[in-house]
């Protein structure tokens, strides 16, 4: 993997954020239904970029990050719901029931709490090798799902928690996505990310050069869990309700598809994957609603959307296993890169 410049990831991030601004500006004058789709895509972008921080740099798949979305969403719900509503829906200890934080404070608290939790969970997880680590993350997803859908007192069990403050609009979602991209790019510039990418190419060689693969994986795991949890918070407060079954296999599949389709080794790829999958889903959703041709409305049966997404993922895996973009990142137009390459990386 060639690093042209220390600030290359930052350039990429700025270009991506400029593109997001363009998308958000277009969406701000679009009809509400389309605007909602864009908001949802921006939130998914936050999640997928968070996933990219771990999966993209370490090369290890995680099936468990959606669990952090769920944990983040539920924590934020409990911290922001009105005490009276909590009293009717849940059965919490008095102090927590009475607590109602303003949403920014709740968001920060959730991110910190998930960071601690991810450290506790990730520390033993990251010591696992080979296929055992993805399997353990899978187990994390299932455990979280089972607990969330049964813990009546805290999560409301199988019923949805309703009445979350719906503070997430277009620009909040944009802010979340832009921050996630900056965090991912900022992390990618550190020596930790470089060492982790090294272990992705060859775990044995990395260990032989003195890289503590377990530690580097843990750092990325915690950081990515925090970003994904923020995505989960935004997601819950965008919809206004939260159910355990939202955060299970289907969402895991969709977010992984987004990451893999665009190219899981590249930040640009992660963003491109979200854009492509969201676009395809939206088109198919409108076909499912029905297309009027003259007097006849032709509607595709429900399920078509998922079929096309799965076929898309399979086609990409077969034809372009590295994803649409592979390793490539977007940068400034090339004439700006004529400056002497003084900032070559020293570490290895």
């Amino acid at each position: 993997m060639v690093e042209n410049s220390l600030f290359r990831p930052l350039q990429t991030a700025l270009v991506l954020i400029l593109a997001l601004i363009a998308v958000a500006l277009c969406a701000s004058i679009a009809p509400p239904a389309l605007q909602r789709t864009v908001i949802e895509a921006l939130i998914k972008l936050t999640v997928v970029v968070g996933l990219f921080i771990f999966v993209g740099q370490s090369g290890v798949f995680s099936f468990g990050h959606v669990a952090f979305m769920a944990i983040g969403g539920y924590m934020s719900a409990i911290l922001t719901l009105a005490p009276a509503r909590k009293a009717t829906l849940l059965d919490l200890p008095g102090a927590i029931e009475a607590l109602q934080l303003p949403w920014p404070l709740a968001l920060v608290a959730v991110i910190v709490a998930v960071g601690v939790l991810a450290t506790v969970v990730g520390w033993p997880f990251c010591r696992l090798r080979g296929i055992a680590l993805p399997m353990a993350t899978f187990a994390l997803l299932i455990i979280t799902y089972v607990v969330a859908s049964n813990w009546q007192q805290v999560t409301g069990g199988r019923q949805a928690l309703v009445g979350l403050p719906r503070y997430v609009g277009l620009w909040t979602a944009f802010g979340g996505a832009a921050l996630a991209i900056l965090v991912a790019a900022g992390y990618a510039m550190t020596r930790h990310a470089l060492m982790l990418r090294c272990s992705r190419e060859s775990e044995v060689a990395a260990a032989a050069t003195g890289i503590d693969v377990e530690r580097e994986r843990l750092i990325a795991f915690v950081l990515s869990a925090m970003v994904v949890a923020a995505g989960g918070v935004l997601f819950s407060h965008f919809i206004g309700t939260i159910t355990a079954s939202t955060f299970y296999l289907d969402l895991t599949f969709v977010t992984l598809t987004m990451l893999v389709v665009g190219g899981m080794r590249s930040l640009t790829g992660a963003c491109a994957g979200v854009a492509l999958v969201s676009l395809v889903s939206e088109l198919l959703r409108s076909v499912e609603r029905g297309v009027a041709i003259g007097d006849v409305t032709i509607a595709a049966p429900p399920g078509l959307q998922e079929i096309v997404l799965a076929a898309l993922l399979l086609a990409i895996l077969v034809l372009r296993p590295a994803g649409l973009l592979g390793d490539a990142e977007i940068g400034w137009p090339s004439f700006r890169r004529a400056a002497p390459a003084t900032a070559t990386r020293q570490q290895g």
Binding site: F61, A311, L314
Partner: peptide, 24 residues
């Protein structure tokens, strides 16, 4: 020739595909 993790993802896709064809 793909890695076990890529294979797992592809089997995920196959599973999702068949499920939704049956759903349809």
């Amino acid at each position: 020739k793909a890695s076990p993790a890529t294979l797992l993802i592809s089997s995920f896709a196959v599973s999702y595909l068949i499920q939704h064809i049956v759903l349809l």
